[in-house]
Each structure stands twice: as C-alpha cells, then as structure tokens.
Design a protein around this nucleic acid. Structure first.
Lengths: 123, 123
DNA sequence: AACGAATTTAAGCGTTGACTTATATAAGCG
DNA sequence: CGCTTATATAAGTCAACGCTTAAATTCGTT
C-alpha cells in the first residue's frame, strides 16, 4: 500500500498532525479526534492501526497506555514523490514573489523538470 | 476536497507522473494508463476530471484533442503540509548520511519541529 | 451534411473502506 | 481476585468511489 493511500483520509491526517507535536497516547488522540470529527473510540483506534501498519507511527506501551509517535519513513517517501513536481513552482512563481515571500524554504533545484520525451514542451 | 484525497489513488498519481514529463493529450494518457492498469478509456477520463476539478491539471483544447498539463498549486499545498514533519528526518537521519547521499536536496530548516505542548518530548 | 475520431458525460453496479456496537485483552487498584 | 480504565479486535452495515457500457458532444474531413 502506497503512503499516499494512507494519507487520503482527513482523520488520519489530523492524527498525524497531533503526533507531530509530540508523543500522544491513544486516549489523548481519541479525545481530540472524537470532538473534532464526532466518531467513536474504536474508529480512532482503527485509524491508528492503519497508521501503524503503514509505518507512519510507532507505538510504545506504558502501563495500560499506548504512546504513539510519528515515524518519518513514509512521509519522506511522499516528499520524494513530490520531487518530480518541484520544478513546477520553484521558478515560474517566484517571479511573482509569491513562494519566496511565504514559505521561505530554499532548495537547490538540481533535477528541475527533466526533459520531455515525446510530445510538446510546455509554456 | 483536500489535495491529499485526490492523490489517494494510484491511477491519478501515475497520470500526474506522466504529465510531469510534459503536456499530454487525453488519448496519450489513456493509452499508457490503459496498458498499465487495464482500465477503460472513460475510466481514465474520469480520473482526469478529478485532477482537473482538484486543480492538479489544466486543459487546453487543440482541435479535437485535450492537452493536459500539471498545475502546481495543490501539489505545493501538499508540500507545505509536509513541512510540519520535515524535522523528523532532516536531522536525525543525515547523521547516517542517508538522506544527503540520496536526495541531494538542501533546505534551510527554519521552523524545525516546533515545541511540544503537553505530553513528553520524543526520543 | 454525413461520417469518423477524440473525448466527455450519464447511468448503473460492485467493491472497498470507514463507521458502529459489542466483545476481548490487559494492566492498575481496592 | 473482582472492578474499572485503557485500548484493541470482531462482526456487520452503509455509503462513497471507481469501473463498465452506452450515449452525447465536438471537431475534422471528404
């Protein structure tokens, strides 16, 4: 199962956002998600399982609590997948100053928009 | 509909990969996808519609052909969403030389893993 | 104007997947 | 030990989504 399949769910994305702020117990996550999405505790637990099995989160037992934490690998994989599209905004838009003004992130564009193979070139 | 919902489908991801190499007509895309996934031409057309409506692709008419091209905005949005997780690999792993050896992409980590709010710190 | 190619839209169907309720597991505690 | 708390699993239901076939649209061609 591809990483992006797992991220194709708003609840799971939100859970990851919570975990990004630091380790959280299943119960803590459930409380928040429950109030935000109005779903049951088992539903949250099932999402946690998907995240676990997808490698997005790791668990650590502490007493009867299960402490979840973000695991980087699949997210990095998504980031890599995006690489092939980076050329579409790294230039072209900073002409308008849009991106640089906002993100302030700076990358070296080394592979930038590899050559076309068959059809026409764009723009 | 969130950008990541749209990317939660292998066919749509593959279509975007094709478009990343340059403008392609609906028919050209269909041919490739069809051979790779074994689905019908209308099925491909429907995926193209989702990409269109999600802002991932733009269309340009040329005679009876429709030429599709990648549109950056939603992909950039995904990239931004990933920002909150970047801290989980930008350090910690380049100690192993893994990332730097591979991606060769260099970012300035200006916001890196914002402080925890409630529970424990990780690691 | 009729025909054919390229593409989209419409309608219907089947499967996947997210949810619910109910139950199991397991640790803390009186 | 039995009870409660924390969490996971099981089983079943329902809706969303992706696919198919069929029809509509649009342009180019003779």
């Amino acid at each position: 199962m591809h990483a992006l399949d797992v991220l194709g769910d708003p609840v799971r994305r939100r859970i990851l956002e919570l975990l990004a702020a630091g380790e959280r117990s299943s119960g803590e996550v459930s409380t928040v998600i429950r109030s935000e999405f109005g779903i049951s505790q088992p539903a949250v637990s099932q999402h946690l399982r998907v995240l676990r099995e997808g490698g997005f989160a790791s668990v650590r037992a502490e007493g009867t609590r299960r402490l979840y934490a973000v695991e980087a690998a699949p997210l990095r994989e998504v980031d890599r997948w995006l690489d092939q599209f980076r050329g579409f905004w790294e230039q072209r838009l900073d002409a308008l100053g849009t991106e640089l003004a906002r993100g302030k992130r700076q990358r070296r564009l080394d592979q930038g928009r590899g050559g076309d193979s068959r059809t026409g070139e764009e723009t």
